[in-house]
């Protein structure tokens, strides 16, 4: 049996995150979190990497977190296109963010803000986007084995990233997945059904 032990391995660096699971806090702090990061960036006059400016709906700090997450979740694999250089995973997420309702977008921003800063407690004040591959993987696995809030947060972000990679048809040949077929096969459309006879 390969069941991973997750019941009692609540890493110490996760302690104290539980209050974030209260929805009131989530809602109340979402704007504060976004304002804080944006405000600090302005205060310090930080210059963003040129690639961060390519995205219309994601903040530069969000791009940093998502880029690192993409690199760790979808490592290079033979026969599959790069999740950064070839498939526009981040561009797809940017587009998705642009379509989110305001509340969802705010929560998404808060989730990234928390996920980015959570490792600072146990990884020598290092943010997620600065962790090396091994530490980043350890952090993600620990989050998935922690309380329901951390599990939900991590799974949500993982899903956002992976869906926006595998949705690209350049990834499909390696899976043998056939994708859209109706036009390729020349399947005719049947149109509307005739009126029923009384």
């Amino acid at each position: 049996m390969r069941q991973q032990d997750f019941s009692d391995r609540h890493p110490s660096f996760m302690a104290g995150l539980e209050p974030l699971s209260r929805r009131g806090f989530l809602r109340g702090s979402v704007l504060a979190g976004a304002a804080l990061s944006a405000g600090c960036a302005r205060l310090l006059g930080r210059k963003e990497a040129p690639e961060a400016l390519e995205y219309e709906h994601l903040e530069p700090n969000e791009v940093r977190t998502l880029r690192r997450l993409t690199e760790v979740l979808i490592p290079a694999s033979e026969g599959l296109p790069s999740s950064i250089e070839e498939v526009p995973t981040l561009g797809n997420i940017d587009s998705m963010a642009g379509k989110m309702p305001p509340q969802t977008r705010e929560l998404f921003g808060l989730a990234l803000w928390v996920f980015e800063r959570r490792p600072m407690v146990s990884f020598s004040f290092t943010r997620f986007s600065n962790l090396d591959d091994d530490d980043a993987l350890e952090y993600i696995r620990s989050m998935q084995q922690a309380s329901f809030f951390e599990r939900g947060l991590t799974t949500t972000l993982k899903t956002v990233v992976t869906l926006n990679y595998w949705r690209d048809e350049r990834t499909w040949p390696a899976l043998d997945y056939w994708g859209p077929v109706t036009e390729k096969w020349g399947v005719t459309r049947l149109g509307n059904a005739p009126l029923p006879r009384a």
């Binding site: 760790v72 979740l73 979808i74 490592p75 694999s77 026969g79 599959l80 993987l137 993600i140 696995r141 998935q144 993982k158 992976t162 595998w166 390696a174 899976l175 043998d176 997945y177």
Partner: peptide
């Protein structure tokens, strides 16, 4: 996560 996930997808 990571390589196990990639192997899972490649085995689809």
């Amino acid at each position: 996560t990571g390589k196990p996930f990639m192997h899972y997808m490649e085995d689809m």
